[in-house]
């Protein structure tokens, strides 16, 4: 099958477009998604194609339109709500946690909320502290939410379609750093398995667990290490909640070593949770202490060199793994 080269942006757009074509209950609502074409040009042209009822520009009122998404989902629609970036999601936290994640339970199972919230996130464009957050771990701690991280072009193309099949609210993290990146995508790429983590590269020497911006960085580091004779198994968590322990434990049982790489802050990050699961159920498989490369615990600074130093880079991954292997 001939692979098609496309940007992460184009993959996201094709996913949204397919979702709109598939189901007339689906509509996209968010700041600047219509007339502007999307803050990151992801929804460019969709207003012209689908009209203002299905591509809805909204005022700057995150709590208001996320809450409206919850209500529309309750009343039989399938809204895709775009929160321009995760940084603004704090303004909608009441709706996400107190309503979207909680209504099914509070109502004794009567009211489910089939809502998808897309958020641009991550670091890497010199946007400084207020626009560079990595808050996947916060959302991943909330029962009632399904939290997905779009770490590859394949998932950019297909994950939204999977998310829309969920009867429960899904948070979809997209990474603005990757928007212009070109990769090969299968022409029939579609819905992906959002119950499992994905092994992106097989290896026998060490398990590298990551998500989001970490996936391509980790694969790059794994290539470099392969040339040095170290075979790294790279696992893309993909589903940050509920975590797929099985895939992680199976890999650790094979390699007996694990490293977690993420951009989010170290304290209370995904690494902490992943470690706990491995220690609880796979402790005796380990031949070496678990290690993590996380975001430095600092609001992300503006200058390029400091920004780069704030999160793990491929070379950091290479160096850490060499040490863990004992080279």
């Amino acid at each position: 099958m001939k692979m098609e080269k496309m940007t992460y942006r184009e993959a996201l757009k094709q996913g949204i477009r397919e979702a709109l074509l598939n189901d007339e209950r689906v509509f996209l609502m968010g700041e600047d998604v219509g007339h502007y074409g999307g803050a990151f040009a992801v929804s460019k042209g969709l207003l012209q194609e689908f009209g203002a009822d299905r591509i809805m520009d909204v005022p700057l009122s995150e709590s208001g339109f996320v809450g409206a998404g919850v209500g529309a989902a309750l009343a039989g629609m399938k809204p895709i709500v775009e929160v321009m970036t995760v940084n603004f999601s704090l303004l909608a936290m009441d709706q996400i946690i107190n309503n979207a994640a909680t209504l099914l339970h509070m109502s004794g199972g009567q009211l489910n909320v089939p809502l998808v919230i897309r958020m641009g996130c991550g670091i890497g464009r010199q946007l400084a502290a207020q626009h560079s957050h990595s808050w996947e771990p916060y959302f991943a701690s909330v029962p009632g939410l399904i939290v997905l991280s779009v770490g590859t072009h394949e998932d950019a193309r297909g994950m939204l379609l999977s998310a829309l099949k969920s009867p429960d609210p899904v948070i979809l993290f997209e990474y603005t750093f990757m928007l212009n990146m070109d990769k090969e995508v299968a022409p029939d790429a579609g819905a992906v398995d959002i119950t499992k983590a994905k092994v992106r590269r097989d290896g026998k020497d060490i398990t590298l667990i990551t998500y989001g911006n970490g996936v391509y960085k980790s694969l790059e580091a794994a290539e470099e290490l392969s040339s040095q004779g170290i075979e790294v198994e790279v696992i893309d968590l993909r589903v940050l909640r509920p975590l797929d322990e099985e895939t992680l434990l199976a890999s650790v049982a094979k390699t007996h070593r694990a490293l977690v790489v993420e951009d989010a802050w170290r304290s209370g990050g995904m690494a902490a949770e992943v470690f706990s699961r491995i220690i609880e159920k796979g402790f005796f498989e380990l031949d070496a202490p678990l290690q993590r490369l996380c975001g430095q615990e600092v609001p992300i600074p503006y200058p390029r060199h400091l920004e780069e130093a704030s999160v793990p880079q491929p070379q950091d991954i290479v160096d850490t793994i060499r040490k863990m292997i004992g080279l």
Binding site: G67, A68, V70, G71, A72, A73, A75, G76, M77, P79
Partner: peptide
């Protein structure tokens, strides 16, 4: 906001 969303639906 939920009420607005239900009415919108």
């Amino acid at each position: 906001p939920m009420a607005v969303g239900m009415a919108l639906a």
